[in-house]
Amino acid sequence: MRNLPLVAAMMFMSCLRSSSPAPGMSQEDESVVFPEFFDRFPIVVGEQGQPYELDGVILRAIAIAANDFIPPFSKERQCWDRQEAQLYRVIRQGDIVFVRIDANPSACERKVLMFDSGVQYAISTDGRILRRVFDGEPGGPSHPQRADAGAQETLGEEVPASLIGAVSGEPMSPLPEFLRRRDAGSTPQLLPSDVRDAGPAAPWDGGGRPDGGSPTRPSR
């Protein structure tokens, strides 16, 4: 019994699989700071009939990242676990090529939602993986909101328990093309305003609501 803590600790640590660096990555350089990948629109490569030219260093960096994230030719893979089912976003800064990889929702049949499946790499221009950070992994901002967290005073508003998760602003108008472009007969639409307005007013702006449970209460 006296050794139980030791046994437990060994069991626990045995759960941690090797976190040794990936092939091509000698030791992660945690001083590398990733740029924001989503604070502006990217230029999309691949328009029909349009010539593009890609620097070999960029191409190699993308290939290194893609092969590290999803090694090629290892075995038969499900659609979502293939390199061609991902999106690759690239930013070059000095001697580092930053590569962000996310699943492409339009690459496979939409039968699953993939939460937190992205990763980003810092690749040196001589082809070494300097750093790799998965979504949610502690170790660096990968998101404008996280980078900004705590930097400003909160503007949060207290919300009644009856409206948790059900407060939001006005809907987008018009809808983005991406959301409107659908197969015939199945275009998603916002519900007509008479339906949307059918619910009672928000209680905290004076309306009061006896049933206490509207899924979403748009601001007026």
Partner: peptide, 15 residues
């Protein structure tokens, strides 16, 4: 184009 998007950090009331 309705395909590309960016994420803007904001600090505002939800409503």
């Amino acid at each position: 184009d309705g395909v590309r998007f960016s994420i803007e950090s904001t600090h505002a009331p939800c409503s």
